[in-house]
Simulated assay, not measured.
Amino acid sequence: MPSPDLAERIARLEAIEDIKALKHRYLRACDAKDPGEFRACFIASGASIDYGRLGSFDDADGIARVFERIALQQVDGKNVILDMHHAMHPDITVHSATGASGRWTLKFRQVNLLDGTETVTTGEYDDEYVIEDGRWKMSKCHFNRYWSITRPIGDDCRVDQAGAGG
């Protein structure tokens, strides 16, 4: 039998890995334009969301609607907002068996085919996590933008999109 101290350390490490997997599911849902999985990463009700210019919300349903409105836009059956999220440098603190907090650095790139622009942004996520229905979920997700650069994409720029199935 492992000692209680060892069991606690293993449980803490497992929680950290589960929280990392949660954040990665969230990021993949953003880029894959999957509103159901995006919403499922947050608690059922009462999440504190602050995404700066995209808005602040006291429940994840509000940001899920914004996500759908922006990310799912199409022209001629093609996406016109293309996102790439890379979160790194996780700093996760497990406070209890059911609560944790974390910070992540985000590198974000967006191609906006409606405006003909590419934007690169970096900043920091400040998250809180709780266990809900046996899984870690975000109860707080605040994003603080450090800087951003937007530049036009020229007429000579080609953007290829994979069809259904890649």
Rank of each mutant, 00 (worst) to 15 (best):
M1C: 07
P2G: 04
P4Q: 14
R9P: 00
I10M: 11
A11S: 15
L13I: 09
E14W: 06
E17M: 12
E17D: 15
D18N: 11
A21L: 07
H24W: 13
R25P: 00
R25A: 03
R25T: 02
R25I: 01
L27D: 01
R28S: 06
R28N: 10
C30M: 14
C30D: 07
C30F: 13
A32Y: 11
K33Q: 09
P35T: 09
G36A: 14
F38H: 07
R39I: 07
I43L: 07
A44L: 07
A47P: 01
S48Q: 14
I49C: 03
D50A: 13
Y51T: 00
Y51K: 04
G52W: 10
L54E: 08
L54V: 05
D61M: 08
D61W: 04
D61T: 12
A64V: 11
R65I: 05
E68P: 01
E68L: 04
R69Y: 04
R69D: 12
A71K: 00
L72K: 11
Q73V: 11
Q73T: 12
Q74F: 04
D76N: 15
D76W: 13
G77L: 09
K78E: 15
V80Q: 05
V80C: 06
L82C: 10
L82A: 10
M84L: 14
H86T: 09
A87M: 08
P90W: 03
I92M: 03
H95R: 13
T98P: 02
G99K: 06
G99H: 06
G102A: 12
W104T: 01
T105M: 12
T105E: 11
T105N: 13
K107L: 15
F108L: 13
R109D: 12
N112L: 03
N112K: 08
L113E: 06
D115F: 09
G116F: 13
T117Q: 11
V120M: 12
T121W: 04
T121D: 05
T122L: 13
G123V: 07
E124D: 10
D126L: 10
D127R: 01
E128P: 02
E128F: 00
I131M: 01
R135Q: 05
W136G: 01
W136Y: 08
K137Y: 00
N144K: 15
R145P: 01
Y146Q: 14
W147R: 11
I149Q: 14
R151Y: 05
P152R: 14
D155H: 13
C157S: 14
A162I: 10
G163S: 12
